[in-house]
């Protein structure tokens, strides 16, 4: 069978299957299980109404259960076994890991990441959103700043590899350094600060996201409150920090936390830039170091990441709900 035919057939079966499921299951519910007939009419309609949402939810619940809940439980169980997967070691993987300096470096760096990246992205995003608000060429500036969002992490990392390249003929940093007569340096090997040079890539990419959301939020502030503040004598800074920012605080929190858990998942940037060398590992890249070599250890790291992400995510969902 040709691949095209195969594809079309899959689509037909998939979509048709969905339609058949929703139509058929509702039909069965209304005609067979709780028929709206005779004496029980009212009661049956009520019961059918109660069951119906679950009919629609069922496929999603099954899919989520299969692809989300099962892997989580499965990973946790796997993390209690050793590298081969046959010997139960209890919390051994975790204990070993906590004692390893590489893990501690990764945790420390990861905290640097979640402190710096969301803060910097949100700050720059807000700054750009405010500065371009009433500008005639603001739309162009915004689309330029938004563009990195469309690049993959690996692609972005490659671009920045060129920026940091040691050869002054390639790397702009060293080119500028050379112009002032400095010897070439490799920013990615400067201890501690190299973390920030890598984080900048993420900030560069996420600023666009923050800007778009915050710019919409700024637009949503009622014009009159701003005019009232102008009449009250607020200068542009007071207007921004005392009137505008507090009114979009909910959105800022959502942007901040969204970037936070994006940051907790990022592995490609570090992997591409340094491969975790020069003390730049973060938890996801540390996990990748062990993947396929020691799945027990790797799943244990994955679990630690999940434990860190979960509260951030809950906060994010709460905040997003409150905002509506």
């Amino acid at each position: 069978m040709s691949p095209i035919l195969q594809g079309v057939l899959t689509i037909i079966i998939g979509v048709g299957g969905c339609l058949a499921y929703f139509y058929g299951s509702n039909l069965v519910l209304d005609r067979v299980v709780f028929p709206a007939r005779n004496d029980d009419q009212g009661r049956n309609i009520r019961r059918a109404t109660m069951v119906r949402p679950w009919l629609f939810l069922l496929p999603a619940i099954l899919a989520l259960g299969l692809y989300l809940v099962y892997p989580v439980v499965g990973s946790f169980i796997r993390s209690l076994y050793d590298r081969s997967g046959s010997n139960f070691v209890g919390l051994g993987n975790y204990l070993e890991m906590f004692q390893e300096s590489g893990f501690r470096v990764a945790v420390f760096n990861n905290f640097l990441w979640i402190l710096f990246v969301p803060a910097a992205s949100t700050f720059f995003g807000l700054l750009v959103a405010q500065l371009t608000d009433r500008l005639s060429w603001g739309a162009i500036a915004k689309s330029l700043i938004f563009m990195p969002m469309a690049i993959s992490f690996v692609g972005a990392s490659l671009i920045w590899k060129f920026v940091y390249a040691g050869d002054p003929a390639i790397g702009i940093i060293n080119a500028i350094g050379a112009y002032f007569g400095a010897a070439p340096v490799d920013p990615l090997q400067i201890p501690f600060w190299n973390n920030f040079f890598i984080m900048i890539i993420m900030v560069w990419m996420q600023t666009g996201f923050a800007m778009v959301i915050l710019s919409a939020a700024l637009r949503g502030i009622p014009e009159e409150t701003i005019e009232a503040a102008i009449i009250d004598g607020a200068n542009p800074f007071q207007l921004f920090f005392k009137i505008k920012v507090p009114q979009i605080a909910g959105t800022i929190a959502v942007v901040w936390t969204t970037i936070t858990f994006l940051t907790l998942k990022v592995f490609d940037i570090v992997y591409t830039m340094t491969g975790g060398n020069f003390d730049t590992d973060i938890l996801p890249s540390y996990m990748m170091d062990y993947m396929f070599r020691d799945d027990g250890r790797a799943t244990a790291v994955a679990f630690v990441i999940m434990v860190i992400v979960t509260p951030v995510m809950i906060y994010n969902i709460r905040q997003a709900r409150k905002d509506v």
């Binding site: 009622p222 009159e224 409150t225 005019e227 009232a228 009449i231 009137i243 507090p246 009114q247 605080a249």
Partner: peptide, 13 residues
């Protein structure tokens, strides 16, 4: 001058 707006324009926060 001081102005009172139709929509009140109170600072919501």
């Amino acid at each position: 001058i001081a102005m009172v707006f139709q929509s009140y324009a109170l600072y919501p926060h």
